[in-house]
Protein backbone atom coordinates (compact mmCIF):
# COMPACT_ATOMS: atom_id res chain seq x y z
CA UNK A 1 0.00 0.00 0.00
CA UNK A 2 2.74 2.40 1.03
CA UNK A 3 6.36 1.84 0.21
CA UNK A 4 9.33 3.99 1.26
CA UNK A 5 12.60 2.88 -0.30
CA UNK A 6 16.06 4.19 0.52
CA UNK A 7 14.73 7.57 1.66
CA UNK A 8 17.50 10.02 2.56
CA UNK A 9 17.16 13.65 3.51
CA UNK A 10 19.84 16.09 4.60
CA UNK A 11 18.87 19.64 5.59
CA UNK A 12 21.25 22.52 4.83
CA UNK A 13 23.71 20.22 3.15
CA UNK A 14 27.25 21.58 2.96
CA UNK A 15 26.70 24.25 5.62
CA UNK A 16 27.67 24.22 9.29
CA UNK A 17 23.95 23.59 10.03
CA UNK A 18 23.99 20.33 8.08
CA UNK A 19 21.52 17.86 9.57
CA UNK A 20 20.90 14.32 8.45
CA UNK A 21 17.18 14.07 9.09
CA UNK A 22 16.52 10.74 7.38
CA UNK A 23 19.07 8.05 6.72
CA UNK A 24 18.13 5.06 4.53
CA UNK A 25 14.50 4.73 5.54
CA UNK A 26 12.77 1.60 4.24
CA UNK A 27 9.20 0.93 5.22
CA UNK A 28 6.38 -1.16 3.72
CA UNK A 29 2.77 -0.99 4.79
CA UNK A 30 0.24 -3.62 3.76
CA UNK A 31 -3.37 -2.54 3.26
CA UNK A 32 -5.06 -2.12 6.64
CA UNK A 33 -1.81 -1.81 8.58
CA UNK A 34 -1.94 0.63 11.50
CA UNK A 35 1.63 1.55 12.42
CA UNK A 36 2.46 3.65 15.46
CA UNK A 37 5.76 5.54 15.43
CA UNK A 38 7.75 6.54 18.50
CA UNK A 39 11.13 8.18 18.87
CA UNK A 40 12.87 11.04 20.63
CA UNK A 41 12.69 14.69 19.57
CA UNK A 42 14.44 15.32 16.28
CA UNK A 43 14.44 11.62 15.35
CA UNK A 44 12.96 12.47 11.94
CA UNK A 45 9.39 11.31 12.48
CA UNK A 46 7.75 14.46 11.13
CA UNK A 47 10.24 14.64 8.29
CA UNK A 48 9.25 11.13 7.27
CA UNK A 49 5.55 12.03 7.39
CA UNK A 50 6.28 15.09 5.24
CA UNK A 51 8.05 12.88 2.68
CA UNK A 52 4.89 10.81 2.40
CA UNK A 53 2.56 13.79 2.20
CA UNK A 54 4.73 15.61 -0.33
CA UNK A 55 5.40 18.66 1.84
CA UNK A 56 9.08 17.67 1.45
CA UNK A 57 10.84 15.72 -1.29
CA UNK A 58 13.61 13.24 -0.49
CA UNK A 59 17.19 13.82 -1.67
CA UNK A 60 17.26 10.20 -2.64
CA UNK A 61 14.82 7.30 -2.65
CA UNK A 62 11.24 6.69 -3.74
CA UNK A 63 7.80 6.93 -2.20
CA UNK A 64 5.04 4.84 -3.72
CA UNK A 65 1.40 4.63 -2.82
CA UNK A 66 -0.60 1.71 -4.15
CA UNK A 67 2.19 0.89 -6.66
CA UNK A 68 2.19 4.47 -8.06
CA UNK A 69 5.51 6.27 -7.71
CA UNK A 70 4.56 9.59 -6.12
CA UNK A 71 8.03 10.84 -5.23
CA UNK A 72 7.80 13.86 -7.56
CA UNK A 73 4.05 14.34 -7.36
CA UNK A 74 3.18 17.77 -5.89
CA UNK A 75 1.61 17.85 -2.45
CA UNK A 76 -1.86 18.96 -3.57
CA UNK A 77 -2.12 16.09 -6.10
CA UNK A 78 -0.89 13.51 -3.67
CA UNK A 79 -3.44 14.67 -1.12
CA UNK A 80 -6.16 12.76 -2.93
CA UNK A 81 -4.63 9.55 -1.52
CA UNK A 82 -3.86 10.94 1.90
CA UNK A 83 -5.77 12.00 4.96
CA UNK A 84 -3.78 14.11 7.40
CA UNK A 85 -4.28 15.42 10.90
CA UNK A 86 -1.69 17.87 12.20
CA UNK A 87 -0.46 18.41 15.74
CA UNK A 88 -1.84 21.95 15.82
CA UNK A 89 -5.65 21.79 16.17
CA UNK A 90 -5.83 25.05 14.18
CA UNK A 91 -4.04 23.57 11.18
CA UNK A 92 -6.60 21.10 9.85
CA UNK A 93 -9.67 23.30 9.46
CA UNK A 94 -10.62 26.70 8.01
CA UNK A 95 -11.61 28.85 11.02
CA UNK A 96 -13.75 31.49 9.29
CA UNK A 97 -15.87 28.89 7.52
CA UNK A 98 -18.73 26.90 9.00
CA UNK A 99 -18.59 23.26 10.09
CA UNK A 100 -20.61 22.10 7.10
CA UNK A 101 -18.48 24.14 4.68
CA UNK A 102 -15.33 22.59 6.11
CA UNK A 103 -16.74 19.12 5.69
CA UNK A 104 -17.80 19.98 2.14
CA UNK A 105 -14.17 20.80 1.36
CA UNK A 106 -13.11 17.41 2.69
CA UNK A 107 -15.92 15.81 0.73
CA UNK A 108 -14.58 17.07 -2.62
CA UNK A 109 -11.07 15.86 -1.90
CA UNK A 110 -10.81 13.32 -4.67
CA UNK A 111 -13.37 14.74 -7.07
CA UNK A 112 -12.80 17.70 -9.37
CA UNK A 113 -14.19 20.82 -7.73
CA UNK A 114 -16.96 22.28 -9.85
CA UNK A 115 -19.53 25.07 -9.71
CA UNK A 116 -21.87 22.76 -7.90
CA UNK A 117 -23.17 23.98 -4.57
CA UNK A 118 -20.77 22.87 -1.84
CA UNK A 119 -23.50 22.09 0.69
CA UNK A 120 -26.90 21.08 -0.63
CA UNK A 121 -29.67 19.44 1.32
CA UNK A 122 -28.65 15.90 0.46
CA UNK A 123 -25.04 16.49 1.50
CA UNK A 124 -26.09 18.32 4.64
CA UNK A 125 -28.01 15.23 5.80
CA UNK A 126 -25.02 13.08 5.03
CA UNK A 127 -22.65 15.43 6.88
CA UNK A 128 -24.98 15.43 9.86
CA UNK A 129 -25.05 11.64 10.12
CA UNK A 130 -21.27 11.55 9.80
CA UNK A 131 -20.84 14.11 12.58
CA UNK A 132 -23.01 12.02 14.87
CA UNK A 133 -20.17 9.51 15.00
CA UNK A 134 -18.14 12.03 17.01
CA UNK A 135 -20.75 12.27 19.81
CA UNK A 136 -19.86 15.94 20.31
CA UNK A 137 -23.22 17.34 19.28
CA UNK A 138 -21.54 19.09 16.35
CA UNK A 139 -24.29 17.77 14.08
CA UNK A 140 -26.56 20.42 15.58
CA UNK A 141 -24.09 23.22 15.00
CA UNK A 142 -23.56 22.83 11.26
CA UNK A 143 -23.59 26.58 10.69
CA UNK A 144 -21.22 27.49 13.51
CA UNK A 145 -17.88 28.92 12.44
CA UNK A 146 -15.11 26.41 13.12
CA UNK A 147 -12.98 29.14 14.74
CA UNK A 148 -15.44 29.09 17.64
CA UNK A 149 -14.88 25.41 18.46
CA UNK A 150 -12.57 24.23 21.22
CA UNK A 151 -9.24 22.63 20.35
CA UNK A 152 -10.58 19.15 21.05
CA UNK A 153 -13.69 19.72 18.95
CA UNK A 154 -11.60 21.08 16.10
CA UNK A 155 -9.26 18.12 16.26
CA UNK A 156 -12.18 15.69 16.23
CA UNK A 157 -13.58 17.51 13.22
CA UNK A 158 -10.15 17.40 11.52
CA UNK A 159 -10.02 13.68 12.13
CA UNK A 160 -13.46 13.15 10.66
CA UNK A 161 -12.56 15.31 7.65
CA UNK A 162 -9.28 13.46 7.11
CA UNK A 163 -11.00 10.08 7.08
CA UNK A 164 -14.14 11.23 5.30
CA UNK A 165 -13.24 10.06 1.81
CA UNK A 166 -11.54 6.85 3.02
CA UNK A 167 -8.01 7.85 1.99
CA UNK A 168 -5.51 5.20 0.95
CA UNK A 169 -3.21 6.36 3.76
CA UNK A 170 -4.01 8.23 6.98
CA UNK A 171 -1.15 10.27 8.48
CA UNK A 172 -1.42 11.38 12.10
CA UNK A 173 1.48 13.40 13.48
CA UNK A 174 1.13 13.80 17.26
CA UNK A 175 -2.47 14.74 16.69
CA UNK A 176 -3.36 14.42 20.37
CA UNK A 177 -0.25 16.15 21.76
CA UNK A 178 -1.74 19.64 22.02
CA UNK A 179 -4.84 18.54 23.92
CA UNK A 180 -5.52 18.09 27.62
CA UNK A 181 -5.58 14.44 28.79
CA UNK A 182 -9.35 13.89 28.67
CA UNK A 183 -9.63 15.44 25.21
CA UNK A 184 -6.59 13.48 24.05
CA UNK A 185 -8.28 10.31 25.21
CA UNK A 186 -11.42 11.21 23.30
CA UNK A 187 -9.44 11.80 20.11
CA UNK A 188 -7.53 8.55 20.63
CA UNK A 189 -10.80 6.65 20.95
CA UNK A 190 -12.23 8.34 17.87
CA UNK A 191 -9.08 7.54 15.94
CA UNK A 192 -9.47 3.89 16.80
CA UNK A 193 -13.16 3.88 15.82
CA UNK A 194 -12.72 5.72 12.54
CA UNK A 195 -9.68 3.73 11.47
CA UNK A 196 -11.31 0.41 12.30
CA UNK A 197 -14.61 1.33 10.63
CA UNK A 198 -12.95 1.73 7.24
CA UNK A 199 -9.91 -0.45 7.86
CA UNK A 200 -7.66 2.50 6.93
CA UNK A 201 -3.94 2.08 6.38
CA UNK A 202 -2.54 4.39 9.05
CA UNK A 203 0.71 5.91 10.29
CA UNK A 204 0.55 7.57 13.69
CA UNK A 205 3.37 9.45 15.42
CA UNK A 206 3.07 9.75 19.18
CA UNK A 207 5.23 10.53 22.19
CA UNK A 208 2.92 8.60 24.41
CA UNK A 209 4.31 5.04 24.57
CA UNK A 210 1.16 3.64 26.10
CA UNK A 211 -0.86 5.07 23.22
CA UNK A 212 1.64 3.60 20.77
CA UNK A 213 1.18 0.19 22.37
CA UNK A 214 -2.60 0.39 22.68
CA UNK A 215 -3.27 1.39 19.10
CA UNK A 216 -2.40 -0.32 15.86
CA UNK A 217 -1.03 -3.68 14.81
CA UNK A 218 2.60 -2.64 14.23
CA UNK A 219 5.08 -0.31 15.87
CA UNK A 220 8.33 1.32 14.78
CA UNK A 221 10.91 3.22 16.76
CA UNK A 222 12.99 5.94 15.14
CA UNK A 223 16.24 7.53 16.29
CA UNK A 224 18.69 9.88 14.59
CA UNK A 225 17.00 9.58 11.22
CA UNK A 226 16.79 5.80 11.20
CA UNK A 227 14.19 3.18 11.92
CA UNK A 228 15.95 1.29 14.69
CA UNK A 229 13.19 -1.10 15.68
CA UNK A 230 10.24 -2.69 13.92
CA UNK A 231 7.67 -4.63 15.90
CA UNK A 232 5.42 -6.81 13.76
CA UNK A 233 1.84 -7.85 14.14
CA UNK A 234 2.70 -11.08 15.93
CA UNK A 235 4.91 -9.53 18.62
CA UNK A 236 3.07 -6.30 19.34
CA UNK A 237 0.15 -7.55 21.51
CA UNK A 238 2.23 -8.63 24.52
CA UNK A 239 4.62 -5.68 24.40
CA UNK A 240 5.12 -3.36 27.39
CA UNK A 241 6.86 -0.02 27.95
CA UNK A 242 9.82 -1.63 29.82
CA UNK A 243 10.25 -4.00 26.85
CA UNK A 244 10.57 -1.01 24.52
CA UNK A 245 13.04 0.76 26.82
CA UNK A 246 15.18 -2.34 27.14
CA UNK A 247 15.08 -2.85 23.42
CA UNK A 248 16.28 0.74 22.88
CA UNK A 249 19.12 0.28 25.34
CA UNK A 250 20.21 -2.93 23.66
CA UNK A 251 20.32 -1.32 20.22
CA UNK A 252 21.81 2.05 21.15
CA UNK A 253 23.87 1.00 24.15
CA UNK A 254 22.50 3.96 26.13
CA UNK A 255 19.48 4.68 28.28
CA UNK A 256 16.46 6.18 26.61
CA UNK A 257 15.67 9.73 27.56
CA UNK A 258 12.24 8.76 28.70
CA UNK A 259 10.63 11.58 30.70
CA UNK A 260 8.73 12.90 27.71
CA UNK A 261 8.21 9.48 26.23
CA UNK A 262 6.45 8.18 29.31
CA UNK A 263 4.44 11.21 30.23
CA UNK A 264 3.79 12.22 26.58
Amino acid sequence: MLKLEHINKIFNEGTPDEKVALNEINLHLAPGDFVTIIGSNGAGKSTMMNMISGALTPDYGTVSIDTTDVTRMPEYKRSQYLGRVFQDPMAGTAPSMTIEENIAIAYSRNAKRTLRRGVDRERRDFFRTSLERLHLNLENRLNAKVGLLSGGERQALSLLMATFTKPAILLLDEHTAALDPSRAELITRLTKELVEADNLTTLMVTHNMQQALDLGNRLIMMDKGQIILQIDEATKPGLTIPDLMAEFERIRGEKMNSDRALLG
Binding site: Y76, Q80, A91, I105, R113
Partner: peptide
Protein backbone atom coordinates in the same frame (compact mmCIF):
# COMPACT_ATOMS: atom_id res chain seq x y z
CA UNK B 1 -8.19 31.06 5.47
CA UNK B 2 -5.77 28.16 5.80
CA UNK B 3 -3.56 27.24 2.83
CA UNK B 4 -2.02 24.22 4.49
CA UNK B 5 -5.44 22.75 5.19
CA UNK B 6 -6.83 23.22 1.70
CA UNK B 7 -3.68 21.76 0.13
CA UNK B 8 -4.14 18.69 2.29
CA UNK B 9 -7.57 18.35 0.66
CA UNK B 10 -5.97 18.21 -2.78
CA UNK B 11 -6.60 21.75 -3.93
CA UNK B 12 -4.03 23.55 -6.05
Amino acid sequence: DNKRMIRSFSAN
